[in-house]
Deep mutational scan, measured.
Amino acid sequence: MQRVNMIMAESPGLITICLLGYLLSAECTVFLDHENANKILNRPKRYNSGKLEEFVQGNLERECMEEKCSFEEAREVFENTERTTEFWKQYVDGDQCESNPCLNGGSCKDDINSYECWCPFGFEGKNCELDVTCNIKNGRCEQFCKNSADNKVVCSCTEGYRLAENQKSCEPAVPFPCGRVSVSQTSKLTRAETVFPDVDYVNSTEAETILDNITQSTQSFNDFTRVVGGEDAKPGQFPWQVVLNGKVDAFCGGSIVNEKWIVTAAHCVETGVKITVVAGEHNIEETEHTEQKRNVIRIIPHHNYNAAINKYNHDIALLELDEPLVLNSYVTPICIADKEYTNIFLKFGSGYVSGWGRVFHKGRSALVLQYLRVPLVDRATCLRSTKFTIYNNMFCAGFHEGGRDSCQGDSGGPHVTEVEGTSFLTGIISWGEECAMKGKYGIYTKVSRYVNWIKEKTKLT
């Protein structure tokens, strides 16, 4: 034993070699072989497995989906700052455009905790909710729209109204504003409101030439003092309507412009014939205590009207009353817009006519005020429907199939267009061939041609 100890002390290297040989010859039971080890760690190889990531292109799944990435790591994937920024906006807080917040056709661009709407022409605001041009839906104005110097929408209202708090709607500024039905039992019968379409306001006024200088022999019209197929109006439903009495009662109609003036057809009036105007009328054979009678003290036909040349060209006249009318729910003026808007309103496509005229061709006159909704007829169809001249200051309205029309005794009465609950004068009943005849239409004086003249002559002093 002493000898062994001496050998170990003198030859430590020998001992180490012996131990190493023993270990190498022993069977290893701690580690699995290569094949079995792979069965336990069965993990798919990654895209760049075996390579240094710093030297390969980034992978979106590896960089940002398996674990949260930084902007720089995302930049490695896209290799483009702009594309990385677009991805980053949604990656950080989701897609803010998912709810489609942009209105009126706006395009949404996502941002971090926010979004941006790219608005089409005519709109602005956070969600493109603000109209900035009158060309689109009248700028959301209830009545009139004008573009300011910086191309912003400025709404306005006709006389007797003021802008509401929203700067879009119009509200009454006087007790009985024009064009409004205020009798409670008839307010439910107000005709369907007309909503502004998209309009090209630059070209809204037709490029028409008034044929002022045409000389033409007097034409022989049949029954051209021209509501057939209409309905009984309720008291106060058309408070701007008046009836004219002269040699015979209810020979023509008219509309209240203001307390002192009536507008009617020029062919209705004769110099030297006494005319009485009755406002607030409903049943011409009954006294309903809503009527107001006034005498006409002055007749002003349009300066281009000449019955000797043509009885229905420039067929418009103004009547001055001896005493002002007292405005109330049964006696209310009709609204008159400017030339541009009167023309736009007419193009809405349908209007209402009213009167006490004959209820059928050569038949009896109506006792109760009649009204009828009539569609506008395109000019080409209008011209083809008659052998008589249709001037540019006239328009056609009615039904091709016949059966409904204005008729004798309705002449001078109103053709009105309702705009968001307020009625505007767009025409004056003038003439036609018979009444409600198939293929024939009622012919009306186009008020847009005469609004400046009306307003100039009827100013209240």
Rank of each mutant, 00 (worst) to 15 (best):
Y391I: 05
I299G: 04
F399N: 11
I112K: 13
K339W: 08
S411I: 12
F31S: 15
R162A: 08
E270C: 08
D338M: 04
F224P: 10
Y161R: 04
Q57I: 11
D200I: 12
V353M: 04
W261T: 02
Y91Q: 15
S354R: 07
T85D: 10
G13Y: 13
I300N: 02
G432V: 07
S11T: 12
A37W: 04
P12S: 14
D95E: 06
K126W: 05
E434N: 13
Q216Y: 11
D131L: 08
G439S: 13
K247R: 14
K457I: 14
L319S: 00
V181T: 13
Q96E: 15
K188S: 14
G349Q: 05
G398M: 04
G402C: 06
V153C: 04
S448N: 04
C407I: 06
K168Q: 11
N283V: 09
R358Q: 12
V273W: 13
V374F: 02
N36E: 11
R140C: 04
H303D: 11
F87M: 15
T29Y: 12
K455Y: 04
T215M: 05
K45A: 12
Y115R: 03
T209V: 12
E165C: 04
T417I: 05
C335A: 00
S99V: 09
G351D: 01
G105H: 07
R373M: 08
H361E: 11
G403Y: 14
K459M: 14
S430K: 02
Q241L: 12
E433Q: 14
E86K: 15
S329L: 04
M6T: 14
R3L: 12
G254C: 01
G246H: 08
L23V: 13
E86P: 14
V56M: 08
E27Y: 06
N306M: 06
D322A: 06
G229M: 12
G253S: 07
N38T: 15
I214Q: 14
G236H: 10
R226I: 10
R226Y: 13
F388H: 14
Y47Q: 11
G402T: 08
Y91P: 06
K168N: 07
F196R: 08
T84Q: 08
Q90C: 04
D378H: 07
R43I: 09
E86I: 15
V30R: 14
G402L: 12
K137F: 09
V419P: 01
G421T: 05
A149Y: 11
G50H: 10
R191A: 12
V278T: 13
C18R: 03
K440G: 11
K234S: 14
T332Q: 03
G229L: 08
C18N: 03
S329K: 14
P324L: 03
L244N: 01
Y391G: 14
